[in-house]
Nucleic acid binder design. Structure first.
Lengths: 192, 192
DNA sequence: CTACAAAACTAACAATTGTTAGTTTGACTT
DNA sequence: AAGTCAAACTAACAATTGTTAGTTTTGTAG
């Protein structure tokens, strides 16, 4: 298997996103990032254009990954709404397991985007709208409870968006089917 | 009804927390806060000791409110675990409706606490541990599904901690029983 | 009208910020 | 041995940061 090794720029982004996760974009300085790599701040600029570009790279990459994933789910045929919800949950778990720090950065620091803020917001609105449509169809078909879809949307999405906080700490839980149990709790509740 | 009018310091905190909610503690400057009040940054120091004190006031006040609320729930007798969960949900909805910006600040900027970080973390650990105990009792008594309590805890708490994002935008939903519907979705799920 | 306290102001500080310019290092290739 | 090129370095900048000191304004009670 050929493995393209990490470029220096990717290394910087990876270092930066770990710091962003801990303290947030605004509280992390270029000197912090440089120090974590064992070099001086000015050296970073041989590889990246600006601090803002690091943020933008992180958020847009993940945002587009969600957009693609949701498009596939929407396009899936012969599938119940419940199964679509399960696939949404799976999408979040997968992306979060592979990029916990990027997820933290997207969730917490999107408002510091400068050039690409509007684009990001559009991706997010579209994603949420697709989610809403799936819920509405589920209610129409009688597969979901007839509760205000906004409440369901809020409730599920809040949990999924917080996954980055828990996944890195709970390797144990993950290995034994986080996905199945999480789906069970979110879809069928907790009462016996 | 006698109404103690807001002190200047409280006005500053209220202005600051709204800005913290939008951009986060680190991205808000003392000049931002001052400008929002129509005065100069130096004037703030007639009323407060430091930027850090503003943050600390906000977070500790809310943190202690949760601690007190949870203590009452734990102490309640002749109550099922389900009813305890409902009271936890009610506690979050109430505090969040009354202090959406403070909730945002506590959730997003606690890591920037300097003097009182350890105290805050202790409050939070105790709160989560009480929550966990309630879940375990519920499972033992057969009132809750026998799912790993960590997953239930994570799932419910994620939703409750995100309430600050939605409550200010959804006056409509709130008036017609947010509490009941949210409890329904979180406790009994969404499948029909 | 005067006195006093609250709350604003101006001016400045030392530290830190993101970033640029120009230079040096060090590992390969020829 | 000489040349090349990525990637590090030093030094500096202009702007912004939280905060302080000292002074003036404002409103109210005697």
């Amino acid at each position: 298997m050929i493995q393209k090794s990490e470029t220096r720029k990717e290394e910087i982004v990876r270092t930066a996103e770990a710091l962003f996760k801990k303290k947030g974009y605004s509280a992390v300085t270029m000197r912090d990032i440089a120090q974590a790599m064992g070099i001086k701040a000015a050296s970073l600029y041989n590889h990246i254009q600006s601090k803002q570009q690091i943020l933008s790279d992180i958020i847009i990459q993940i945002g587009e990954q969600f957009t693609e994933g949701m498009a596939e789910i929407v396009a899936a045929e012969n599938i119940t709404s419940i199964e679509k919800l399960e696939r949404i949950i799976k999408l979040h778990v997968q992306i979060t397991m592979e990029n916990p720090s990027k997820m933290a950065t997207m969730n917490n620091d999107w408002m510091h985007l400068e050039g690409k803020l509007d684009y990001y917001l559009q991706l997010r609105r579209n994603y949420e709208e697709s989610f809403r449509q799936i819920l509405k169809q589920g209610i129409e078909k009688g597969e979901l409870k007839a509760v205000n879809p906004e409440i369901i949307l809020f409730s599920i999405l809040s949990t999924l968006r917080s996954l980055y906080l828990w996944i890195p700490k709970r390797e144990d839980i993950i290995k034994e089917n986080l996905l199945g149990k999480l789906s069970q709790v979110m879809l069928t509740g907790v009462t016996a």
